[in-house]
Amino acid sequence: MANAADVDALDFEPDDDDLMDEDATVDVDASSPTTAAAHIPKLKSAITSSAPKKTKGRGFREETDPGRTNRMSGRFDSLDSDGGPGPERSIEGWIILVTGVHEEAQEDDLQNAFGEFGEIKNLHLNLDRRTGFVKGYALIEYENYEEAEKAIASMDGGELLTQTVNVDWAFSRGPFKRRNDRRRSPHGHRSRSPRRRF
């Protein structure tokens, strides 16, 4: 299948896998939640250097499946992208996200409001599985960049069925603002806060 070929063709920065690495190093100590929590710091440190988190759940106490690293550390298929800022094109068009959608909204309401910027190629108006009402967001696909851009410019902050909706691109060509504290090097950054002196 074409998929398999794509997967092989696109590499994936191994450095970005740091969130997954903790499996290999987690020691098993089910007896004490504090000890177990102390063995989890890699995920924590990968995304923050701030105060320790309140942890909860069996996942901190049980033996971690070593397969987890393999599952998520391989090559992932993505569309070609230069990694720069700005929206990313999807395979057949441009996808925007509408949030703040009224729980009783119908597809027609979105068609009417967003159809004027261009033909809607796809519309996902997902439901809350518990209530059966609209979950609160919609994903809309336009064929052309200009259509999507116009929809965002015209509808973001606007009103739909008495509620204010926000409209933005769904996909991006690269990561958004990396936090300073994601740097894993011990010399990578220094806290400005005096409280963090050791």
Partner: peptide, 10 residues
């Protein structure tokens, strides 16, 4: 296996 970057809004 698929990966894509999302906007902050998503």
């Amino acid at each position: 296996r698929k990966e894509v970057f999302l906007t902050p809004s998503v």
